[in-house]
């Protein structure tokens, strides 16, 4: 009997520990939410209160109506969507042949993509600035899309390669026996089979672009500033305007969190799939 009791106690302790861990990780973000809902005057009260004493949308009105943030959100959205599309168009065929037609050339190519993942953005920022300037694309949406795609493509390649790895070679061969060219087999059979892998990769590319900061900081100035840049400017310009800043942070992060929670299973699947399979 004591044996059973000890086991139960052990289980309860593990459950409690897991709960504490999870709560302590959720708490900071909950505090951000709470703060954004406080009246601006209460945000910086001393000592701080975790929960708002009265709920107010003052901070949200401030950032959504009286600022350049909505425009920046629009920029972020356009850039992220275009980056996602472009990086998929480039990465899908390449990742496919890199895994299904393994040879020296494709191995070298994947290694190059892997190396590209390691390159610090700060190293490429200024040369990219020079390149975009010579192309006349500085401070434009297409310019930033190109820059973001240069980081999204290697990411997409490695993720997609892990997904393509799981597709048997037979499938393409069967399609070719059934009357397809190699490219038709890829388009009509392989891509539909890869649907969920493509969706996850698209999401990761989207988030990579949505979250990106340094290239946006270097390559945009007036017209094509994205949300993180504008939020960061809040940070320095109104050093003490914590209220609007928390509201902006919530607005900026909620869509991504919502998508993540909605597609959590697939995302974590994709994340760990790529990582664990190495």
């Amino acid at each position: 009997m004591t044996d059973v009791n000890q086991r139960d106690i052990g289980k309860a302790m593990i459950n409690a520990a897991a709960l504490v861990l999870v709560l302590s990780y959720a708490l900071p973000y909950v505090y951000l939410l709470m703060t954004s809902l406080k009246p601006a005057a209460d945000v910086q009260q001393i000592p701080p209160h975790f929960f708002p004493e009265s709920i107010s949308f003052e901070n949200f009105r401030e950032v959504l109506v009286n600022s350049t943030l909505p425009h920046a959100f629009a920029n972020s959205l356009i850039v992220a969507v275009l980056t996602t599309i472009l990086s998929l168009i480039l990465a899908l065929p390449a990742a496919y042949v890199a895994t299904q037609y393994r040879r020296k050339l494709t191995v070298v190519f994947l290694l190059f993509a892997l190396v590209t993942r390691m390159v610090p953005a700060v190293s490429l920022g200024v040369p990219l600035f020079q390149l975009l300037k010579s192309l006349g694309l500085l401070d434009t949406v297409p310019g930033l899309v190109l820059a973001h795609t240069s980081t999204a493509v290697p990411l997409a390649l490695l993720l997609l390669a892990a997904f393509f790895e799981g597709i048997p070679r037979d499938l393409e061969e069967a399609a070719r026996m059934d009357g397809c060219t190699r490219f038709q087999a890829f388009r009509k059979i392989i891509l539909p089979v890869m649907k969920s892998g493509i969706a996850i990769t698209a999401l990761f590319s989207f988030i990579a672009s949505w979250n990106e900061f340094l290239y946006a900081l270097l390559l945009t100035s007036e017209n094509s500033k994205t949300a993180p840049i504008v939020i960061a400017e809040y940070n320095s310009v109104f050093g003490l305007a914590w209220g609007p800043m928390t509201a902006a942070a919530v607005v900026y992060s909620l869509p991504v969190i919502a998508i993540t929670l909605a597609l959590q299973k697939q995302i974590i699947g994709g994340l760990t799939f790529g990582a664990v399979k190495g």
Binding site: V22, I207, N211, P228, M245, T246, V256, I257, T260, Q264
Partner: peptide, 21 residues
Amino acid sequence: TVFALPLMVPPIVAGLLWRFL
């Protein structure tokens, strides 16, 4: 699910949040 929450918080927001904390 809850633990995965910070995973997709943009770094800028994480930075701001922790500065605030």
